[in-house]
Amino acid sequence: MTQAAPRLTVEGLSAGYGRIEVLHGLGLAVAPGELLAVVGANGAGKTTLLRVISGLLPARAGRVLLDGRAVTGMAAEKLASAGLAHVPENRLVFPGMSVADNLSLGAYARRRGSGEAVERDRRFVLDLFPRLADRLAQPAGTLSGGEQQMLAIGRGLMAGPKLLLLDEPSLGLAPKLVSEIFAVLGRLRDQGDLGIVLVEQNARAALRIADRAIVLDRGQVLLQGTPKALLDDSRVQAAYLGRGYTEVAR
């Protein structure tokens, strides 16, 4: 692990909806170049955690730091230009717009910056997902679920992020596509100093590519450690790797 300030630090984070508190004083850190997997049951608060980090939902207590800088309470549209990209649950592509437009909108926060860097990232994304390169003019709403997921990730990468948040990229995809997407995530982890938070219900697949992982349970960190330590933990085996979690095709 590098010595630099963590890409992301979350301290004592509480958040919720209405009278219900979902996250209860949660903490975690992600180093540059590190891929942190966040696993947990339905309703554990994984999506809520990412929504608070990216500014879509206000924190009730605690802090979020990006590269050591406090960004708690900053609006989502501002955080996009601070180097954070959030690939949301259910992809949320812009359905009526072309693949090319979806990608260029990913770079919206950089529109006053260098066009060269954006062009380089565009080529990088199309190299990661050649299927998108074949469909640049197609409306995103007509893409298959897997292609939409690729587009959502590509759109996130077009922001040139320092921190990438991914919410269940494997949701609803056929095993072959899941392994394709996880292969890309592996490539992203191995290059540069991008910090990645990967929320997944497919715990096995996520633990296979993660540097570190946490298990979220009812809004709190239940366990954390290396993937190997978690895979060996009997509680994890019982709750998250048992029945219902299918092995990803290799």
């Binding site: 609006a75 989502a76 549209e77 501002k78 996009a80 230009s81 949301p88 359905p95 909108l105 990913g106």
Partner: peptide
């Protein structure tokens, strides 16, 4: 670019915010 951001905001406001609109 602004026109496309406008459409993005109409089509999918959450994602539009996430890209900085």
């Amino acid at each position: 670019v602004t026109g496309k951001a406008f459409r993005a905001c109409a089509e999918q406001p959450t994602a539009a915010r996430l890209v900085g609109v």
